[in-house]
Simulated scan of single mutants.
Amino acid sequence: MYKISEFAEMTGLSKETLRYYSEVQLLEPAYIDPNNNYRYYDDGSYFLAILLMKLRRFGFTIQEMISVMKDESFANLEDLLKQKRNKIQMQIEDLRHQAEEIDDFLASGKEE
C-alpha cells in the first residue's frame, strides 16, 4: 500500500488530482484509514492511474473517463479510442486547411 504522496510521485498525478479523482469516483483509494483519513493506494490503483493519465493525454473529458472506468470490462474502450483518433485526424485536417488559407492570403498580398 502506498500513501497518497508516494502514489502521486509514482504516477505523476498530483495529490490534488488524486483527491479530485476520488471525489468524482474515478479512482478511489484502496483504503482510507478511519483514524486519520490517510488515503492508501495499491498496485491495482497504479494501473488504473496510468490508464487515466493516458486517457487524459488522449483528450478524454472527465465524464468520458468516468464512463470508461464504470465499464470495468473496458469493452468500449477500443471504440472510444478510435473515435478520439478520428476526431484528432479531422482536427489535423482542419488545421492544415487553415494553414493553407493563411499561405494563400499572404501570397495574395504579395502579388499586388
Rank of each mutant, 00 (worst) to 15 (best):
A30K: 14
I66R: 13
P34G: 07
Y2K: 13
N86G: 14
N35P: 03
F105P: 03
Q98W: 08
K70E: 12
Q63Y: 02
G12A: 01
A75V: 09
A49S: 05
G44N: 14
A99F: 05
T11E: 02
Y38F: 04
L26G: 07
I102L: 13
D79L: 10
E93N: 10
I32Q: 12
S14Q: 10
E72W: 15
A49W: 01
Q63T: 09
N86M: 12
R96I: 14
I92A: 06
F58S: 06
S5C: 06
E16D: 14
L51H: 09
D42N: 15
K110F: 00
I62V: 15
Q83I: 13
R96L: 14
N76I: 13
L26I: 03
D42G: 13
A8D: 03
I4F: 05
I102F: 02
V24W: 01
G59A: 10
R57T: 05
R19N: 14
I62P: 06
R39V: 01
A30S: 15
F105W: 10
N36I: 08
D42H: 06
E72R: 15
F47M: 08
Y40M: 14
F58H: 00
S14I: 09
M1D: 00
Y41L: 07
I50P: 01
D104H: 13
E101S: 15
L48P: 02
D43L: 12
E112W: 02
E78S: 06
Y2S: 12
L81M: 11
V68N: 03
L106Y: 05
D42I: 00
K110A: 11
K87H: 13
P34T: 05
N76W: 11
T17K: 13
L77I: 09
I62L: 08
P34N: 06
F58R: 00
Y21M: 04
K87D: 13
G59T: 04
E9A: 08
S5G: 05
K110V: 02
F74E: 01
K110M: 02
Y40K: 15
